[in-house]
Every structure is written in structure tokens, then in C-alpha cells.
């Protein structure tokens, strides 16, 4: 069939550039093949990536008619609208030329942050097949970037290490029973922009074409990190304080004491006297009292608080055993 392929050509300075091409393609073949056909037959200056054509290399990610896709996985007939397909850069990336973007900054640098190779000390622990299944899951990742593309945090903070790197860098290594450096990895991952900056919005899981569920994996990583007693990196104390304050509150009364949570996290009276905490939180706290949002009445325990405290005690004991 005849399809008009339109390209949104960002950062292309060529004054003669064309952005619309009619190609004859088999509707059963992929959008990526249609893109390649245009480049090979009509305009060799078109810039986009992509090599394998079967969704293994993850290099061709773009928007096709407004959908964020790996275009080699989408058939022409499923994408075409009014005989046309518009190809455009994905969001959250720095354009280089046309549909080609700075993938190093977007993903590879972040991946490398996690020292994504195993650290072994020569002894091979006994491993069961199912122990390696999480590793296989992470390695299924094709670095297509659709999770980072849809990431709520990267949307506002380009430096956030993001679901792809957390999956293929951190999850892949820490879940591998052969790795000997897990705790140190969690300490490094706990720095700002890392593991604790994720807001668990589940976007990543929704976007991954391969069912890898990066958000799940990130939550799983947090559980593992907590179990090893690492609740954030050394330079990122707020994450750990927040966790501890939250846990203390629920442990004590069965539910959340928001006043205590804020005070402990920010180091406010009666738990501390942090000036920056006061500056940022006091106006809000006073307003809350004025508006009747924060009550001054004491926080009462839930009826089941004792049972809940027992749950904490048991899990914390198992973490101690794990560490020892």
C-alpha cells in the first residue's frame, strides 16, 4: 500500500529538508521497515537509530502517530491513520538530529552508574534454577527506553537514574546470587536520583513492551535494601529518616502519626531542631493548624496496635538473621 511517512525533523539545519515521503510498503511489515525504506530510497540524510528489526535491540524507539512505540514491533497497517504515519522523537530526551536523540545521556550513563557487572570472589555459591529467574527477567530488557520515556520522575528530573537502569543495572546484579557486593550496591543506589527517588507511579510497568514490570522490580529492590538495613545512601539521609519515622509511627500506634512523621523526618521539635526543616515546614504546619487540618489532639493508638507491633518485630528479627 502507499503510505505517507512524515518525519518531525528536530535540530536539522538543512534548508532543503523534506519531511513527507510517499512509500510503497507491505502493510504487514513493520513501521521501522517503512522508515528504513524512506531513508534508503528517498533521503539518506534522515536520522534515526535501529538495527535488529525484531525488537531485540531496542534502538528504534520513537512516536508513531502519537503512540510511543518500538516501531519494528508495530505493523504498518496497525499504525497508519488516513494513509499516513507521523514519526517523532519520544519525550524526555535531548534531540541530536531528526528522530535520533542522545541515548547515552538518556540511558547508558545511568546504566553504567550501577557497575552492572558481577563482583565475585571466586567462590561459586550453589544456585537453584529459580534463583536466576529474576536475573533472566532483568536481562530480557532491550533498553528500548519506553519505561524511562514514560517515567513521571524523569519528566521533571532528567538526572533520575530511572527504571531501565534500576532494572538492568541494579536488579540484575543484586538479585544474582553469585554477586558478592549487594550491600554496597544498595548504598550507592540509595544516593539522590537513585532508588528512593522513584515515586512508584507504575508508569514504567505499564509502558514496558516485554512485561518486565520495572516498577515492581524497584519496589522489590527497596524491600531487599531495607532487609539489609540500607534505607538510603550516605549522602541522602532524608530517605532513611522518612522511612524510619514512618515505620516507627506505624509500629507504635498501628497507623500513621503525620505530625510525628514530619517532625522526625525534618528533625523538628520534639525530635530535633533543624533550621532548614523549620524554615520549609513551619509555615505549612502553622497554616494547617489554622485551617483545622492538623489537630493538636494527641495521636491515639489503633485497637490492633499491639498485633501490628508484633508483625514489625517478627520481620525485623528475620532481617537481623539475614544480615548475620
Amino acid at each position: 500500500m502507499q503510505v505517507t511517512m512524515k518525519f518531525v525533523r528536530t535540530k536539522n539545519e538543512d534548508p532543503d529538508q523534506r519531511d513527507s515521503f510517499v512509500v510503497d510498503v507491505d502493510p504487514e511489515t513493520s513501521v521501522f521497515e517503512a522508515m528504513s525504506k524512506v531513508r534508503e530510497e528517498q533521503d539518506g540524510s534522515l536520522a534515526f537509530r535501529g538495527t535488529c528489526n525484531t525488537g531485540f535491540c531496542g534502538d528504534c524507539t520513537c512516536q508513531a502517530n502519537g503512540k510511543r512505540v518500538v516501531p519494528c514491533l508495530v505493523k504498518v497497517k496497525d499504525s497508519v491513520k488516513e494513509d499516513a504515519i507521523e514519526i517523532k522523537l519520544i519525550r524526555n530526551v535531548a534531540p541530536v538530529k531528526d528522530v535520533l536523540y542522545d541515548v547515552d545521556q538518556f540511558m547508558w550513563k545511568k546504566y553504567k552508574y550501577f557497575r552492572p557487572w558481577l563482583e565475585t570472589n571466586g567462590t561459586a555459591p550453589a544456585v537453584k534454577d529459580e534463583d536466576l529467574e529474576p536475573v533472566r527477567l532483568a536481562m530480557r530488557c532491550t533498553v528500548c527506553g519506553l519505561c524511562d520515556e514514560g517515567c513521571t520522575v524523569i519528566d521533571v528530573d532528567k538526572e533520575f537514574l530511572g527504571p531501565m537502569a534500576l532494572t538492568k543495572g541494579l536488579y540484575r546484579t543484586t538479585k544474582d546470587p553469585r554477586d558478592q557486593d549487594t550491600k554496597q550496591r544498595f548504598i550507592e543506589a540509595g544516593e539522590k536520583k537513585g532508588l528512593w527517588d522513584c515515586v512508584h507511579c507504575w508508569e514504567a510497568s505499564e509502558h514496558c513492551p516485554w512485561g518486565i514490570n520495572p516498577t515492581h522490580l524497584i519496589m522489590d529492590l527497596r524491600d531487599d535494601s531495607i532487609a539489609l538495613g540500607v534505607k538510603s545512601g550516605k549522602g541522602n539521609p532524608m530517605a532513611a529518616r522518612h522511612y524510619n519515622a514512618f515505620a516507627d509511627s506505624v509500629k507504635k500506634s498501628g497507623w500513621l502519626n503525620e505530625r510525628m512523621l514530619a517532625s522526625k523526618t525534618y528533625g523538628l521539635p520534639p525530635y530535633g531542631l533543624s533550621l532548614s526543616g523549620m524554615m520549609s515546614q513551619m509555615p505549612i504546619a502553622l497554616k494547617a493548624i489554622r485551617k483545622g487540618k492538623a489537630s493538636l489532639r494527641p495521636h491515639k493508638s489503633r485497637p490492633g496496635a499491639r498485633q501490628i507491633a508484633k508483625i514489625f518485630a517478627k520481620v525485623e528479627q528475620s532481617h537481623k538473621n539475614k544480615k548475620a
Binding site: 527497596r222 524491600d223 531495607i226 532487609a227 514512618f246 515505620a247 489503633r302 490492633g304 496496635a305 520481620v315
Partner: peptide, 14 residues
Amino acid sequence: DVGCTGAGVLSSEI
């Protein structure tokens, strides 16, 4: 007589 869900903050083990 029920506790906080954990709000995605607490470890799911707890």
C-alpha cells in the same frame, strides 16, 4: 482494629 497499609513506603514484607 486495622493498621496502616504501608502506603508503598513500608517494605511489603511488613
